[in-house]
Amino acid sequence: MTIGGPSDSSPSKNRRRDAARVKAKQLRVSQKKKDRRNKVFLQGGIGIAAIAIIVLVSVIIVNSIKPAGPGPKNMASDGALIGEGMVTVLTPALQPDAKPRPSEPDPTGAVANIRIYVDYLCPLCGDFEEANTEQIAQWVDSGAATVEIHPVAILTSKSAGTKYSLRAANAAACVANYSPDDFFDFSSALFVDQPEETSPGRSNDEIKAVVSEAGVSTARSSINSCIDDGTYESWVKAATDRALDGPIPNSSMKSIIGTPTILVNGKPYTGSLEDPKEFASFVQQALGETYSTSTPTPTPGG
């Protein structure tokens, strides 16, 4: 008998087919398991990626929102008050959500109290500054007047997205905090070659250059860091809202409606911003009216 003849061929084929079916089934089962694993990994990867995106967005949002912090020192009235000898009155920092403490006017009426609300991007503020800063400085230095400067940021959206108005007011607050007696000169220097409204304004480095040009020599490193960090931006926004919402202390004004807003002994100045003689006349008139109402009426035999 010949081994492996025709009589054995059919069972051998059947065994091979059965083995192939088993192998195919095993492959299908294995592929299904692999597909399930890939699906789980894919879903897990999507979930992890989504969580990572949420975390990243949250970090960006948190970092972009500056928590309210204390205001600058020497601006407890929301302004810096400069008196005789160009010396800035020292005050503690205004704490978050605390109400400003208005400066007290001269009780005798003999000293003119000039109050100015300025936006460093405001062209009309620049006009008033150019025409009047020299004579105001002379009056204040001699003790004939005080000047209280309130930086506000009404035009924050008017500088091609750079928020120059806000950054400049923050820089003024930084100088008031660290080098208060240089505040007047720095505030005036911001109006020299003033950027035009709707322009990008000065960069932080250019603002820091103005600090140097204004002759600020105290705590320059701290002031520069304060400018770069936007330390008092939340305070500037709050002070701006207070000025716009009112009321305006020591005045019959309900609120400011724009910049510059100029008050002399509580009376709003509405004359020419570019005529120093007209402003000087208004100051003299306001001073005379205040003095006459502040002077006690003599009593008989007094």
Rank of each mutant, 00 (worst) to 15 (best):
S165Q: 10
R202G: 00
F128Y: 09
P268A: 06
P67I: 14
L190K: 03
T299P: 01
D8Y: 11
N113E: 05
A19M: 15
L42P: 03
S212K: 09
E274Q: 14
G246A: 00
A49L: 14
V175Y: 09
A153R: 01
G271K: 06
A76P: 05
S103E: 01
S255A: 12
V57E: 00
A209F: 12
M253A: 12
M1R: 11
S30I: 00
I46S: 13
Q31D: 08
T297W: 02
N250Q: 13
A280F: 10
R167V: 08
M75E: 02
S7V: 14
S10G: 04
R28S: 09
G47R: 11
K237A: 09
K33H: 12
Q285C: 09
G215R: 07
R101V: 15
E104T: 11
Y232Q: 08
T88F: 04
L190Q: 02
N132Q: 06
S157T: 14
E206H: 14
V22N: 11
G69H: 07
A173Y: 07
E129L: 03
Q194G: 01
V87H: 05
D18R: 15
K25W: 08
D141R: 12
D182I: 12
P102D: 07
I60T: 07
P100W: 06
G258E: 02
S203K: 13
S188M: 10
I60W: 12
P195H: 03
H150C: 05
I262C: 00
H150Y: 15
Q194K: 04
F282S: 07
P105A: 10
A153E: 04
N132I: 02
V59L: 15
G109N: 02
